[in-house]
Amino acid sequence: MDPKSWIRAKARISPYEAIFWIAAAVIPFVFFENYLSLAASVAVTALFCISLDMILGYAGIISLGHAAFFGIGAYTAGILSARGWGEPISGLLLAAAVTAAVGYIVSFMIVRVQHLALLMITLGLSFLLAELAISFDQFTGGSDGLQGIDTWKLLGIWKFSLWGHTAYAYALATLFVLFLLARRIVHSPFGLTLEAIRENPVRTTALGAPNHAHLRKIFTIAAAFAGVAGALLAQISETVSPEALGFQRSAEIAVMLILGGTGRLYGAILGAIIFMIARDQISGFYLQYWYFWIGLILILVVLFLPRGILGGLERLARLGRRA
């Protein structure tokens, strides 16, 4: 056996991946033109979910407050635009820079704690920021939300219309580029070290790894990813409300990731697609029962598919090959 080719095979792009991305680029435009706005928000959510997967699925950092970074990104891009600079791509970059900086500062606190304390700190952080967003209403618009966002044409060419063609193309392209980056990170020596820390931090220390430094780094990167997702939402919807960094968004993203399957990136995307489409369809006629169904599905998945829906599908495919 050649060990290098075994390692290389694990990171190889499969035909299924190519099919998935082509389908994502074509199907909504051709068959679901009326749902392009929904498709755009699915892409945004998938990006946010990938961000959580990088810290939770790969590095083992549990967070119930990840929306804090989503919200900071959304307010950064939104305020920039409302104050007169609506160029979208520079808005994303600024949001990434700001959330990375905040993520880096917060990461010093995060890496010191585990388990329940980690949940409480991340939760506390998102409560705190949601309140700040409401009180600083001269910047944020308070609880009414930020108004006056005007997103300029993408690359000076494509206007953001009500139909969402530009919005979906923009969100999908951003998702794709950042997905490739995330994929590269998880298949790097750094990505392997993160998985080892998740599996056994005592051992990585005994092998000389500075666990805290590694965890701070991925937390900062993931914060920037979440910030870009938030900025995308602000630019596409041209509004930001304090819900962007609220507890509900943090909880929902965790639910999506666990449904889809952690530690595999595509689980994050699949979870976002299923959750967002199901909510759109079910809440049309049963809004009040939505959480009943999502609660039921979550319990069933955790009990019977501990590695998420994608993990379950992979097992099915393996069984199929063996039979």
Partner: peptide, 30 residues
């Protein structure tokens, strides 16, 4: 140990850490 990683991955991780490669986040492990 690292239950979900293979021995090959575990030992590679240890060697990357020793050789100060573990911070490389944009180069493929392969």
């Amino acid at each position: 140990l690292f239950p979900q990683l293979t021995p090959l991955e575990s030992a590679t991780m240890a060697i990357c850490e020793r050789d100060a490669l573990s911070g490389h986040w944009l180069s493929p492990l392969a």
